[in-house]
Each structure stands twice: as structure tokens, then as C-alpha cells.
Design a protein around this nucleic acid. Sequence first.
DNA 1: GCGATGTTACTCGGATACTAACTGTCCGAGTAAGCCAGG
DNA 2: CCTGGCTTACTCGGACAGTTAGTATCCGAGTAACATCGC
Lengths: 166, 166
Amino acid sequence: MAYISTGVEYALHSLLFLAMSDDKVGSVSIRELADLQRLPTDFLAKIFTKLQHAGIVEGIEGVKGGFRLGRSPSAISVLDVVQAIDGRKLLFECQDIRARCKLFGRKAPTWATKGCCSINAIMLEAQKSAQTVLAKRTLADITKRVSAKAPKSFESRYIEWVTEKV
Amino acid sequence: MAYISTGVEYALHSLLFLAMSDDKVGSVSIRELADLQRLPTDFLAKIFTKLQHAGIVEGIEGVKGGFRLGRSPSAISVLDVVQAIDGRKLLFECQDIRARCKLFGRKAPTWATKGCCSINAIMLEAQKSAQTVLAKRTLADITKRVSAKAPKSFESRYIEWVTEKV
DNA sequence: GCGATGTTACTCGGATACTAACTGTCCGAGTAAGCCAGG
DNA sequence: CCTGGCTTACTCGGACAGTTAGTATCCGAGTAACATCGC
């Protein structure tokens, strides 16, 4: 399984649609989002409650309810979404192997302890590097890139679809 | 589970020992390496055959056999080890969600196709960034950092242990 | 009309399968060093 | 001697069990818009 789950993928694509209709439509329901993209409805619902807990979206209960963005698309980074869905998962989980070395007696010396494992340090550096990339990309950036290559009709057809509720 | 498996961790720690004794001992057996670090022997064996296929270590069969580094520690990057053990795993597996969008008919337009998914592009960028960090760190670097903080006696005790075979 | 009631379409959240990957174990096969016996 | 077989300690590689995380589904509870009905 990949480090970044498909849940994140579902979330990002769905958020992209929400961003498109943010100023034009009150809210979009999970059923609509799932239907539109042929995604599993219940699963997408769970994903959105996570996004809500992170403040990325805002849920509106009751009939005619749904979700809308919790803040501006330019204030939602890809990293925000990844961490909201997958949690603050580590790229690498140091298990402190060196401290188990038989050459030490019952207690490992302090220089071999978890906090300063050289291998872990490198992995953390790599993780930070990846996160920096994800942190500087926002929903707004992606929307811009998509609308640059998508035809104008795409957005309008989406708005139409989501308001008419076929 | 973390993106970088514990197999990689076992491999790196073991390779560090091999690097220490590289010029002083012909080869070290899996049993010794596992015993020294209290790691599961059979599992470590499997890991080392992967490292061998990648040319990172060299196996010597028969009694008195074992493994030694396949090339200089400065020519073995952390990324080499990660890819040898975990394969060329992607940080993110694009499933081409956008192409499933109901707004398209039976066939998605070319602008929405896998190769140019904007989300995937960002993930690939993040992955590349992490890999760059891992690629520039070599076994030699780590060895240097470890021996800087470990007491001199550590290395000599290890060499002693591995030659005497208690 | 107008307020009370019921229906419907949503969001929530818990419980539960199913699946795939990683970890760990077991075992049999092949290989080479070192020992030992028979010439 | 020295040559051939035996033992031993390794590496290989296949097969398989256990565990965990992610994916997906089902269902009951709560909420609010809207329609309907009785007055």
C-alpha cells in the first residue's frame, strides 16, 4: 500500500469540485460527490468527517445539507489534507535497533538511544523534505492548473449537474 | 505500517556493521548479524538476498561463508537500500479518479488522463524530493556520524566479537 | 391561513467484513571448508 | 602423503502463518427543509 492512501486521493478530487462551486452553490452532498466521480459513498462520507474535524470542510446537516469548504482554497494545502486523512504518519518508524545490540549489557549507552539514531535522522529529513513540497501546494494552485487545461464547458457542466441534481 | 519498512531498518543497521568490519574481516554470517542485534534470523536472511540481488552485498557460500559489502560504503546510498528491499514503491498510486467523472461520456477526454493528473504530479514531486535526500546519504556518511559519537571501544569490541564468534 | 405533524434527505458515528502487504517462521537444497580414514 | 568421502556451517529460495492497516459496507441516530393535514 502506498504511503498516501486512496482516501487522500478521493478527498483531493472531491475538494477540487467543492472549490469550483464554492461561491456558486451552498453545499454539495456526499451522494452527489460520490455519484459524480463513481466513488464508494459511505467511504467518502467517512473521509469527509475527517476533513471536517480538521476544519477543511464544514458540514451542513439536514435535508438540502452537504459540505462546503471550511476556508479559502488558497489556505488548504495538500499536506493539510494528507494529515487530516492519514494522520501524522511517519515515513519511517525507528525501532531503536542499535540499542538492542548484544555488545551493550542490559542497558544501552546514551549515545545509542532513539532520539539520536543517525538513520532515523536521515529518514526524518527525507520526510520533512516531502512535506515541504506538499505544504506549499494548495487547492487553489491545483484548481488553477486544472482549469488551465480543461475546457471552459467542464466547469459549467459541473455546476449545472450539481444544481439540477439529476 | 510505515512507508519505509522495518526490513530496511534491519538492512541499514546490519550494513553499518559490515561497513565497520569491511577491511578487517572476510565476511560476516547472517546468524552473527542477527544474534548481535537480536533480530529474527530467517527474516534477515531474506533481506540480505534482496541486497545481494541489488549488488549491495556479496554472498559467500559454504562454511565460513557469509556476506560482505558489494562495493564501497561511499557508493551505497540509503535510497539504494530502500529500493533494494521495498522495491520502487510509489509514495502515492494515482488511480485516475478524474477520468471516471460522470460528466464525461464513456471515454474521458485526453486532458483528464493519468499522465497529466495534477494531483499525481505534486505527489511525484514530493517523492522525488524525499528520494533526493535519501540518495545523497551514503553508508559512509552514517558510519562517520556514528563513529563520531560512539566510543572507540565499540568498534574494537565488535571486531573482536565477530572474529572470535563466541 | 396557520400551526402541528410527518416525511425525506442529509450528516454523524459505531460495528464489521474483506483484502493486501509486511513480518516472521519453517524447511529442504546447494555449496564449500575442514576433518578423517584408507590406500 | 594424498585422495575421497563425511560432517558442518553457511547461503539460497519456496511455502506458509500471523498481524495490521486500509478499503469498503451496513445500519441506526440525529437534524433540518419541506409537504401535508387538521383546525
